[in-house]
Computed example of a mutant assay.
Amino acid sequence: MDIGLLAAFAGGALALLSPCAALLMPAFFASTVGTGPKLLLHGSIFYLGLLVVLVPLGVGAGALGTLFVVHRQAIVLVASLVLMVLGAAQALGFGFDPSRLLPSGANLHTRAASTTGLVKTFLLGAASGIAGFCAGPILGAVLTLAAAQGNTVAAGVMLAVYGAGMVVPLLLIAALWQRLGTRGRKVLRGRAFTVLGRELHSTSVITGLLIMGVGVLFWTTNGLVGAPALVPIEAQTWLQERASLLANPLLDILAVLVLTALVLFAWARRQRARGDALQDTEPTEPQR
């Protein structure tokens, strides 16, 4: 995996845990959706809402980067400085709400509050992608990396990965909400502390330091070109060879049949459980 994509995924996860709205979305999903197939369905719709907003932003940033692709050294320098500034702002608790910069962006949460079901989940996804004072510098850093790609497709993919970084931990935390307990949720929320009279937050400080670290790495590796691959070339080649073996229509049909059987099995168990629950709640006739 490319270091830029890994940074985008981590940025999405940290945006979800940002102190302004830490664990609000996982708590909402845990209380209103629950677990199982319904959670996966709403998680997919939530991700679709994220993609509708984030991918066009990424493509736009990538298109802007292509205008200056011939000035790569300048792009690397500017992007590195922007990342450093955004990282410092994040660590010190400064931020901005990107939704205010987009038409009707600030009204997405209001629209979501007036709807229900999957439409509400979709609008929450669209709003979560751009809203949040604390998460503004994170999104700005990912957009900076996307613009530095100089490629609209790669930039769009990077923002899609950023959205996935929000969805994956959201689903995991929502599914484990009851098991986490009060102590586990408190750990995930982080803690506030004071330095030189200014109140800081552990999640923001960690996020800011990571963004600044990416900025330094971006500069020292000429825009991540000289960065070592996270997965060695030999391993990538081996994985590609093994993946080609799976490109077989018979295996595809078998996978679909297995998936269908699992869904039917889960549905049958759920129906049986409901039947047993109804039998337990039916009043018994008094004996004569």
Rank of each mutant, 00 (worst) to 15 (best):
Q90S: 02
L102E: 13
L83H: 04
G60C: 08
L245Q: 14
Q149L: 00
I138W: 03
Q279E: 07
L278R: 14
A146G: 02
R183G: 03
A192D: 00
V53N: 13
L57T: 08
S202C: 11
T281R: 14
A112S: 05
A277P: 10
L250H: 11
A7I: 12
V76Y: 07
Y47I: 04
V53K: 13
S204D: 04
G132Y: 12
L16H: 04
G36D: 01
L50Y: 01
T115G: 14
A15Y: 05
L6Q: 12
V53M: 15
L264E: 12
C134S: 15
G226E: 15
L51E: 03
F46P: 09
D97C: 10
L257D: 13
W238R: 14
I75Q: 04
V225R: 15
Q287R: 13
V168H: 01
T207Y: 09
A79S: 09
R270P: 10
A88W: 10
A113D: 02
E199C: 05
G136P: 00
A88S: 09
A192T: 00
F68G: 13
S128N: 10
V216W: 08
L39Y: 05
L54S: 09
A277I: 05
A63R: 03
S31N: 05
P249I: 10
G95T: 03
V216G: 06
T144Y: 01
M84R: 01
